[in-house]
Design a binder for these strands. Structure first.
Lengths: 350, 350
DNA sequence: GATGAAGACTAAAGCGCATTAGTTCGCGAC
DNA sequence: GTCGCGAACTAATGCGCTTTAGTCTTCATC
């Protein structure tokens, strides 16, 4: 026998039980003037007893917003779930959101168009008060769209290829990014310091702004140091393409002595690809992974990696969004600079 | 200048524009009788023009449910994002949900108590119509709670230690699980077939039902085959404890010749730990990983692993939940049996 | 040609909350 | 002793939608 599910208590129940009107209950629970301290306490106690929680639906309807923020991930299903980045980011986001009892509406879609459609739908359905946008890309349509809808948003990641360029102003949109240029500089510095002069960067998706930014930073840094045999190749972030790219660049006439991978998964795949070729890491080839994870620490040798606190990054982004929801102005801020953790996969070239 | 955000069109707008009453609009848009085909079409066209979408808040308030399902992950932040399992599961879940325009409300919490509190809150706030529950454990308080709240749910994973035992009936709760017994049997069969007689199972969290189920299945299978030197040890799924457990069991007098790890991360860590001891895989030690991933395919040698379609698993779970929401009865079904993919990490013992 | 009934549509209520406009009461001020 | 005023509280309205109860028209029925 299914027990009849408990009925959710409403403000009316509280009102009846506390012997006051519904409005008084509303005032009491929302800390608005209009009730005495005694009544406020009594109402609070009754609400507590009944286990009352405001219905977000009703709240949303009376103009208070939905107490929810959205996050859309536009990645083909195949490349999903390979990186630890997102779950960590999300866990940080949660941390900040839960303090304010905000929910996180999560959606995985195939592509950018579907992502935009999702925003439109969420907006029309009153589902979210704001959104977190990841993977900014070239000619990104999302900031304009979100601005048009009046949906507060925080873009996570650099919005421009060029570190120096000002991104177009979007009044309702904050931007938080990691300093890719400094990070790339520290990687190149580490490798160059070890004596490497031929470095290849196995990058991620070419459409993403941060990919372009990293590539640009790499070129700039190489130029500054007078390194001429430095290049980037792009991939889709998958282990397959990471391995494939590794094989390709290692097959060249003058193969690189060091590889920089744009994520942990590709770095590990690259390590295996090098082993296939009979190359020993780090003796014959040095490898650096952008973003640390268990993967990087579990390989043999363990992976020199760019460590950043992804959860904190997510937390900061969520805090920015909360600030926007509270009516503060949009900001553009740079997050902490990632730190390079040298491990076993990098050494002087042979 | 911030443009004034576009106002969301409501049914009233449609009604005015189509020259009918709001009720007629509601009937038309919901395919209810009470309007002529002509009116229905006209209303539909106007709604389309205006880009109208029903406000989920208003819908929820008038008893239609919130068009949202919830998923809580109770894991300390530290162990989060190490496995690819969850994102893959979620992407499958999405696939099924998005067909019905259901949103996924996602929450990461520290422990089971917080998870239960989340369910209570969601229920009281009318936030979700149903939930997906992962990581069922011993004396799990969640099914009872969800039943009490009348919140439809699908439990993902086996709810009992004993494959033969009937779990307590929860009328509003479906259960979907992978056949751990069969999977364990195939692993033991593979290893025994290669000639291994001393097998140690490096299991996951001892509190989880599926951990206990796997351990039980291992014992049963060993008994059936007359293997006496077979055992399980439990861990917290982390690479650290995986490595630590590996070192411990390999230091025994009669160390095992084969190890079975409950996740990919520990298997890789175990591989490294074996290498430290000077053991060569698979010559001196065979290793099997439960759940395949990039990691398993990227090690050297590549890892013999239990392959299952996690995204499909998530999709099936979400479909079960949708069935519950549609008023169908709860079911208990077993999902596809995982398949063992023999790779380089297993071979006959020396 | 009066009677019913079905069909197309409108009016109104209600969901749970916030909010605005009253209403009542007590108390200090003149 | 009356007036005024603020504090404490209630009544009523609206948010956007669904749904039930009506109203009005038309058309078949005996």
């Amino acid at each position: 026998m299914r027990r009849t599910p408990a009925r959710r208590p409403t403000m009316k129940d509280i009102a009846r039980r506390a012997g006051v009107s519904e409005s008084a209950v509303s005032f009491a629970l929302n800390d608005r003037p209009g009730v005495s301290a005694a009544t406020r306490d009594r109402v609070r106690r009754v609400a507590e007893e009944l286990g009352w929680q405001a219905s977000t639906a009703a709240r949303a309807l009376s103009g208070e917003g939905s107490a929810t923020v959205g996050l859309v991930l536009a990645r083909p299903a195949s490349t999903l779930g390979v990186e630890s980045f997102f779950l960590q980011l999300v866990s940080g986001v949660q941390e900040a959101l839960s303090r304010r009892r905000l929910g996180l509406l999560f959606q995985v879609v195939e592509d950018l168009d579907a992502e935009c459609a999702t925003y439109r739908r969420w907006w029309a359905e009153h589902r979210v008060d704001g959104v977190l946008v990841v993977d900014p890309c070239r000619d990104d349509p999302r900031p304009d769209l979100l601005d048009e809808l009046g949906l507060p948003a925080v873009v996570i990641g650099s919005m421009t290829d060029d570190p120096a360029a000002e991104p177009p102003a979007h009044p309702g949109i904050s931007n938080l990014w990691a300093d890719d240029a400094a990070a790339m500089a520290s990687i190149v510095g580490h490798l160059h310091g070890l004596g490497h002069r031929r470095i290849t960067h196995i990058a991620g998706l070419p459409g993403l702004a941060h990919t372009r930014r990293r590539m640009r930073s790499l070129r700039a840094e190489a130029e500054r140091r007078g390194l001429t045999e430095v290049a980037s190749v792009t991939t889709d972030y998958s282990d397959a393409q990471g391995a494939e790219a590794t094989r390709r660049v290692l097959a060249r006439d003058r193969p690189p002595t060091a590889l920089v991978f744009d994520n942990d998964v590709m770095a590990v795949a690259g390590l295996a690809a090098a082993a296939e070729r009979g190359l020993s890491v780090p003796a014959d080839l040095s490898i650096v992974a952008w973003d640390d994870s268990v993967l990087c620490r579990s390989t043999h040798p363990s992976m020199t990696a760019l460590v950043r606190d992804t959860a904190a990054f997510g937390r900061h982004a969520a805090e920015r969004l909360i600030a926007l929801l509270d009516g503060e102005a949009a900001v553009r801020v740079q997050d902490d600079v990632p730190r390079l953790a040298p491990r076993g996969s990098t050494a002087p070239p042979r």
